[in-house]
Amino acid sequence: MPTSDSRLKVKRDGAIVEVQFRDRNILDEANIQQIGDEVKAIIEAETAPKLLINFTDVDHLSSAALGTLITINNRVRALKGQLRLSNIDPQIYQVFVITKLNKLFEIHETAEKARASFK
């Protein structure tokens, strides 16, 4: 579970767990590792997790962070859950388009729309 040293802000809305980042820049490899570990702990505490990752206030992320998102996506799928991403800055969204990861992830403009999309 997130602690005072957590890199995440976590809130629950019914069955949906929404995660936001405390860092504006998701670049540091140790931080990315920690984020991956924390999200893994959150989703593994759920059955069929409904996870929303909200990128509000995130200014930069690296390809290592994309790798962690893919790992999270695989874990959510293995648990028969659903993953949504939202509030991605337009410049960062370009990173998803260039790498074609916008095809892999279900990305919504707002957290509200993402929450409404869970089945």
Binding site: S62, L66, G67, I70
Partner: peptide, 8 residues
């Protein structure tokens, strides 16, 4: 597409 590295 699902490889976790190689995008840099």
């Amino acid at each position: 597409l699902e490889k976790t590295s190689g995008r840099g």
